[in-house]
Design a protein around this nucleic acid. Structure first.
Lengths: 243, 243
DNA sequence: GCAAAAGTGTTAGTCTTACACCCATGA
DNA sequence: TCATGGGTGTAAGACTAACACTTTTGC
């Protein structure tokens, strides 16, 4: 926790931001934090790349820190490299001030210069079962929580654009790569699955056709029924076939 | 030409590599160079990012240098960041030696250290009308030329993997974004267009169905016929409608 | 007229969409 | 036995793939 932040260990001017998607209450959520140094504004979990690790490892490390999960579904979707990405934004001085108010020893001028310099960032998106995650605030975070993707007003830097691009990439891959189950518990009903699709694509699907399409793909295993106590036919539970 | 290469102008450990696609003789081609400092091996055109420019600008600048064209169709497709991407490869010492044999003043130890350190690279692919391009070898290139995508044996570092990934991205976007015309002259016959598709996807298309599909899209403008002297019906020329 | 290949038409098959219906469940 | 929603069936439509046919061109 009180480890010194040594900028010499990291590649300068290059960072990683993660858009961690979860799903709950028929809504697609994103894990976002409120940085101590820039309150009132939401930020995507991010970090820097050790000189000795790959960018994929760095992204995994960042995810592990925030979710305590291993083997998360993770995909790189784009690099963001406007010349004034961090540097040029108006709140740069505000940001420097915020950082200097924290640990003075850890965040001396050199470190602050480093952190507020021009940064190219590589965007990753991750899909997690929201029930498995106990969100961990980073050292620099005031708090961290799940927010609906349309329920985040102000975001730091260009994080809102990064989130939007992540959603574009997610939608492009969602059906094609069949990655939806990463957002659900191991077993789920067909309705759960459909509602997830509806949340991702923000449009309704016909339940009968949806069911037929999914079953025809031959990737789902039908398990026992799930009795909910409701006065209707009990839905089957499904599980993704292991390869 | 004899401008000093000043590493202070560029972001360290971050580079851009461009996969420049062209099309000729029913084959998809890539523009590759033989670096002076590493002969016998092909390399993708690449470069570094000025601290004052965006990554997209950097990619455009690199393209302009090599093709003398403006407004090239360009798309970022992926970042490559293995921890030993440049550093770890066996030919690193070979590479240092090759560089040191060039201009000793320009490539002093500091510069060589910089250039052979660990690099994360952002991959872009570009589509150009091969007839419009007069390839320009860079300062560090022995030569530059168009090669068939399957006709390149040895490539530097992980450039072969980058090329392969670019092709995956191209195929994924080609039909969806209708970007094929960027590889053709302004006017072309339906057969030209079809053969381009066949080159990109490495599979045959039925000419009648291909024609129907393309015409139904309502993006092509039919021009006059093109008389080739062959003893068969003269094909129409087409042009992409401007928006 | 004839060969070559451009262009059009037609049909069968597949996939998508919409509607109708039956079934299990608990009150 | 009834309302509720899960699950299946079926028919219409759209899209795709394969085949046959007509048209233009230069020899």
């Amino acid at each position: 926790m009180s480890k010194k932040f040594d900028i010499d260990f990291y590649i300068a001017h290059l960072s990683i931001d993660c858009v961690i998607f979860g799903y709950k209450d028929k809504e697609l959520k994103v894990l976002v934090s409120k940085p101590k140094y820039n309150q009132g504004v939401w930020a995507l979990p991010g970090g820097y790349i050790l000189k000795t690790e790959s960018i994929d490892s760095a992204a995994n490390r960042i995810l592990r820190n925030r979710t305590s999960l291993e083997n998360i579904y993770l995909e790189q979707f784009r690099a963001f490299g406007d010349e004034n990405r961090v540097l040029g934004s108006k709140n740069n001085s505000h940001l420097r001030e915020g950082l200097s108010l924290l640990d003075k020893k850890m965040f001396n001028k050199t470190v602050i210069d480093w952190m507020t310099s021009r940064f190219v960032c590589i965007g990753y998106y991750a899909l997690v079962d929201i029930n498995q995650v106990e969100p961990q605030a980073g050292e620099l975070d005031e708090c961290i929580e799940w927010r609906g993707i349309s329920d985040i007003k102000k975001m730091m830097h260009d994080h809102k654009a990064i989130l939007a691009e992540a959603l574009v990439a997610l939608r492009l891959n969602f059906d094609r790569k069949l990655i939806g189950f990463n957002l659900l518990p191991v077993t789920f009903t067909m309705k759960d699955f459909q509602e997830l699709y509806e949340a991702v694509y923000s449009k309704p699907f016909a339940s009968n056709n949806f069911q037929k399409k999914m079953l025809d793909l031959n990737v789902l295993e039908r398990l026992e029924k799930k009795f909910t106590g409701a006065q209707n036919k009990a839905p089957y539970l499904y599980r993704f076939k292991k390869k």
